[in-house]
Simulated scan of single mutants.
Amino acid sequence: MSDQTIILRKTPFYFIRLLVIIEFIFAFLPVFATVIFPVQAEYNQTVLAQSLSFTVFFILVLTTLQVLIIAISFFSWYLPVYRIDPQSVGYKRSGANDFKELIKIQAISCLSPEQHWLGKRFDYGDVFIYSNTEVGVVPLRDIANPTGIAIKLEELSASYWDPSLPLPIQPAPELIAAGESQTVEFKASILWDYRQKRPNKTLSEPIMKTLAAFMNSTGGTLLIGIHDDGSVLGLEADFSAMTKSTPDGFELIFNNAFNRLLGVEYRQWVNLSFPEIEGKTICVATAQPATTPVYFQHQGQEEFYIRAGNASQPLPLSKATVYIRDRFEI
């Protein structure tokens, strides 16, 4: 087995959740059984009733059923496993089965880790793996540390990309129609704050974090002037807050923020264009994969971002060190 192979079982909280449901059901089952069905009257007419009271019999039956269901629940948690290796993600239901390939690593186009409130508390949840092939969406459900697993899959997927090759450029309308993903993100503006209805210079920070994440991953496209829901806002609100109300003025604001937060040496990896959609001007920032790590620099601190699903994820130092070593071969 490769050193990069990961074997995943469902989190123990999955088993605990099953137990809670079972205990809840069995807490009320005797009451419903005796009220709805004439169980005791029927039992008293059997030969067994002469040597074993109905109460003892009923307890034995419930206990036996409970043990069987708990055993089934345990094996339904323990036996199925996922396997992640540098080539593919596989799954098998039991030790007697072989692993079935769910998706090839190189076919991964997007990763989305998801956790509900309890999952966030105990660090478990689902990872949805998206593919542009006929495979579609592959869910890894109820696993521990879903964000970490998504990052690992991103690292493996990135190994199939050649940073020296330019990222394919798609028309902006196609990107908007497809929605946000591993390689596409929307931002409403770089300067105009739609909530506060005034200029806000801090809006450039999430834009630069996204671009850093794209450059540290497999590249991507950031569309500015587009709402999260895909509706076209345009850059006119940004233009109104600029001294030079043109795309050139916008690029000047962009460059100042980029050089301050990321570094002028990385500007070569990002191309800006200003197409018109629905009569409104937007900005399309296409980021190529960088050949060296890109750090977001703010208030004397450096942060390292990558893409994990349709979000830009900061990595702690320990994970960033491993990722940088593998991604940039440093």
Rank of each mutant, 00 (worst) to 15 (best):
M1I: 14
S2M: 02
T11G: 05
F13G: 10
Y14M: 07
F15D: 07
I16M: 14
R17W: 14
L19Y: 04
V20S: 09
V20K: 12
I21L: 14
I22Y: 02
I25M: 10
F26C: 00
A27I: 06
L29N: 03
A33Q: 10
A33D: 08
A33C: 11
T34K: 15
I36F: 11
P38H: 09
P38E: 10
Q40W: 03
Y43G: 09
Y43I: 06
T46M: 05
V47R: 15
V47F: 13
A49T: 04
L52D: 04
F54I: 05
L62S: 08
T64Q: 06
T64F: 15
L65F: 15
V67T: 10
V67N: 02
I69T: 10
A71V: 13
F75P: 00
S76H: 11
P80K: 01
V81N: 01
Y82Q: 06
R83S: 12
I84Q: 01
I84D: 06
D85W: 05
S88E: 15
S88Y: 10
Y91F: 15
Y91D: 00
A96V: 12
D98S: 15
K100A: 12
E101S: 13
L102F: 05
L102E: 03
K104G: 08
I105D: 00
Q106I: 00
C110Y: 12
P113H: 01
W117F: 14
K120Q: 12
F122C: 02
F128S: 09
F128L: 10
I129S: 01
T133H: 07
T133Q: 09
T133K: 10
V138R: 01
I143H: 08
A144M: 09
I149P: 08
K152H: 14
L156W: 05
D162E: 10
P163V: 09
P166F: 00
L167C: 03
L167G: 05
P171D: 15
A177S: 11
G179W: 00
V184E: 05
A188Y: 07
A188D: 10
S189D: 05
I190T: 09
L191I: 08
Q196T: 09
E205F: 13
I207R: 02
M208L: 11
M208K: 07
L211Q: 01
L211S: 03
M215K: 04
T218L: 11
T218P: 05
T218M: 13
H227I: 00
D228P: 04
L235Q: 01
A237Q: 08
S240K: 02
M242V: 07
T246F: 00
T246V: 09
T246P: 03
I253W: 15
V264E: 11
E265P: 07
Y266C: 04
Y266E: 04
R267E: 00
I282C: 07
I282R: 00
I282F: 08
A285F: 01
P289W: 08
P289L: 01
T291W: 09
T292P: 01
F296A: 03
Q299E: 14
Q301R: 14
E302P: 00
E302T: 03
F304G: 01
I306L: 08
I306P: 04
A308Q: 00
Q313S: 11
S318Y: 13
R325H: 13
F328H: 02
I330W: 14
